[in-house]
Simulated assay, not measured.
Amino acid sequence: MAAVTVTGNAWDHTGSPIPAANRPELWFRPLANEVTGDALLAGVEAKATMNLTTGAFTVQLIAEPWIRYRPVLRWLINPLESNTEMWAWGYAEWDWTFNPFPDGGPIGELGGPDLSIFSVLVGLTYPPGYRGWWLYSPAEGEEMPLDDPDIGDLRIVS
Rank of each mutant, 00 (worst) to 15 (best):
V157S: 01
D103H: 05
A46N: 14
W94M: 06
S116G: 13
V157E: 03
G111H: 02
I18C: 15
W11R: 15
P17T: 15
G90D: 12
T97E: 14
A10P: 08
I77M: 12
I107F: 08
I77W: 04
P30H: 11
T97W: 06
S82P: 09
G123T: 10
T49H: 11
P65D: 01
T5G: 05
L135Y: 02
D38I: 14
D95N: 13
G105V: 01
S116Q: 11
T49F: 11
T125G: 05
D148R: 00
T58R: 14
P30C: 11
Y126L: 12
E143K: 06
L73V: 14
I67R: 06
A10D: 14
A42L: 12
G112C: 02
L61V: 12
G15R: 15
W27R: 12
P149E: 00
L26M: 13
R29A: 09
I156F: 03
F28R: 08
V4H: 06
T125N: 05
D147R: 00
W66E: 05
N99I: 06
G112L: 01
A39F: 09
P149Y: 01
V72G: 06
Y126M: 08
W66I: 03
L115D: 07
D153P: 00
I18P: 15
R29L: 14
A20Y: 08
Y130P: 04
L76A: 11
P19G: 11
G43T: 10
A63V: 04
P65N: 01
V157M: 05
T14V: 15
N99K: 08
P79G: 12
A92Q: 14
L26E: 09
N83M: 04
Y130K: 06
E143I: 05
G141W: 09
E93N: 13
A46G: 11
A63S: 11
I117G: 09
E45R: 09
A21V: 13
V120H: 11
W27M: 13
A32H: 08
A20E: 15
T7Y: 10
G15Y: 10
Y126A: 10
Q60T: 08
A3H: 13
R155I: 01
K47A: 11
T7Q: 11
S116D: 10
P19K: 05
D95M: 08
